[in-house]
Every structure is written in structure tokens, then in C-alpha cells.
Design a binder for these strands. Structure first.
Length: 231
DNA sequence: CGGGTTTGACCTGCGC
DNA sequence: GCGCAGGTCAAACCCG
């Protein structure tokens, strides 16, 4: 699988070295911001070219919905045909199918945890209730993908704050947890390296941004393209 | 000094 | 019920 991904030619060439904060820009020769993301996520165009070229997908927001809908409507075994063999997209699914955000991500990474939101958590103290409420997973769209990169955190145009790091079992590479720094934006990102191939970076997103990408990295063309999108 | 990172502790869910 | 593993918190630390 990794070889197929390598063949997409992502991040090849020295001109794509990290620019800041260890972020790596996505190549400019790819055209479509996937899932309403900033141009740095253009790589997603390789996942479902049929969808990208579809007239129904007139903008990034539509693409997001189209992809989400297509995944939600298809059984798991059909995803490969939808997204294309050797797809970079590891997981893309409406959260209603799995209340816990990372369930599919874990699955696609070979994890065994599927998770579950216990709505009937009884007999806890007020403090615990508060924490539970704070921790309760909102059912957000989510997906993950992998790229071949020397740096862990790809520049997707948004500003992230790291809030945790965890050593994952059976891998020497830690998993990092990021949250969008924007107020009221609850999007989270999880970054880890593939145990089987440390060159591959697994990036997982949960939720939709309620704002545009950072102005610092603004690119007028992209901005006009995604001005009303909010992935 | 403000904002981001690190890291150990804590919490929760799941499997046995 | 217990132990394990993953996810989150938050204090300490770092840096511009």
C-alpha cells in the first residue's frame, strides 16, 4: 500500500522542505482542496478523481459533502472502489456511524479499539459529570490519510496547538494530539507515524472548522476558492 | 509576558 | 472486576 502512495509523488523534491514550525507545504501542482481544506490538503484529489471531476462538486464544501455522503451510503467493502485502489484516504465517515471520533481511524491503522459513547454513564460525582460533559465526543465528521513525509505536521493552513502526546503500543513513534487554536473551533488532529513504515505520516482529523484558514498563510486564489467553506 | 510544547497523571472504555 | 491502552488535562517549562 505504501508503494502506491509513494507513487503519488507527494512531497518529492527539495523545494518542499518545511517552511515553519516543522510544517510541510503541500505540492502546488495539485488542484483541488479536498474536503474543504486549505490548499495544503490538495493531495486528497488523488483519492477520488471521479468525485472531484463530478459536476456536482462545484466547490470544496460540496466535495466534502459528496465524499461524506458517498462513504456513508456505501458498505465498507465498497470504499476502495469509491475512493480508488491504493487510496491515500484511510478513513472518511460520518460520525453518526461511530460516535467515537477515532474509531475508524483506529481501525484503519490496525488498532483494536472501536470505542463507544456511553450516554448512560450513571452514578458519578458532579465533578466527574463535569469532566464527562467536557470530554463527551461530539459527533463530528472525520477522516484520516497518510503521506510520505519527513515532518510530522503538515501545513493545512490552520493553526494547531499540541495538547498531548502518547506512546502507542507496538510502535516506537509517539502519537501527537492537536487542537485548532481558534476560539469555538473544536477540530482536532492526530498525527502519528506508521509502525510498518516510519516514513509514512498518518494524519487524522475530527470535526469541521468554523472559520477560514489562518490569514498568515493566505493564498488569494485558495482563499477565494474556499471563502465559505468550513471543513 | 503570552502563547506553544512537554510530560506525567488521570480518566474512560474495552477485553478478558 | 481488573488491567491495559488510548485520550485528555494541566502544571511546568520553553521560547520569541
Amino acid at each position: 500500500m505504501s508503494e502506491t502512495i509513494v507513487n503519488h509523488g507527494l512531497f518529492e523534491g527539495q523545494d518542499q522542505m518545511p517552511t515553519q514550525m516543522g510544517f510541510l507545504p503541500f505540492p502546488a501542482n495539485l488542484i483541488f482542496p479536498p474536503l474543504g481544506c486549505h490548499q495544503s490538503l490538495k493531495t486528497f484529489t488523488t483519492i477520488a478523481p471521479s468525485l472531484v471531476s463530478s459536476e456536482a462538486v462545484s466547490n470544496t464544501a460540496n466535495l466534502t459533502e459528496t465524499l461524506l455522503a458517498s462513504v456513508a451510503q456505501k458498505p465498507r467493502e465498497d470504499l476502495t472502489s469509491t475512493l480508488g485502489a491504493g487510496s491515500q484516504l484511510l478513513s472518511l465517515q460520518r460520525s453518526s456511524l461511530n460516535p467515537w471520533a477515532w474509531g475508524d481511524v483506529s481501525n484503519c491503522l490496525g488498532g483494536r479499539r472501536s470505542g463507544g459513547d456511553n450516554e448512560n454513564h450513571l452514578g458519578v460525582t458532579a465533578m466527574k459529570m463535569k469532566k464527562i460533559k467536557a470530554r463527551r465526543k461530539v459527533r463530528e465528521p472525520r477522516f484520516c490519510f497518510k503521506t510520505m513525509s519527513d515532518v510530522d505536521v503538515l501545513d493545512d493552513g490552520y493553526k494547531w496547538r499540541k495538547y498531548g502526546q502518547k506512546v502507542v503500543k507496538n510502535t516506537q513513534h509517539p502519537r501527537s494530539y492537536y487542537r485548532c487554536t481558534q476560539d469555538n473551533c473544536r477540530v482536532k488532529k492526530r498525527v502519528e507515524r506508521l509502525a510498518e513504515d516510519p516514513r509514512m505520516v498518518i494524519t487524522s482529523y475530527e470535526g469541521r472548522h468554523v472559520h477560514s484558514p489562518s490569514n498568515d498563510l493566505e493564498d488569494s486564489q485558495t482563499t477565494s476558492q474556499i471563502s465559505n467553506f468550513l471543513w
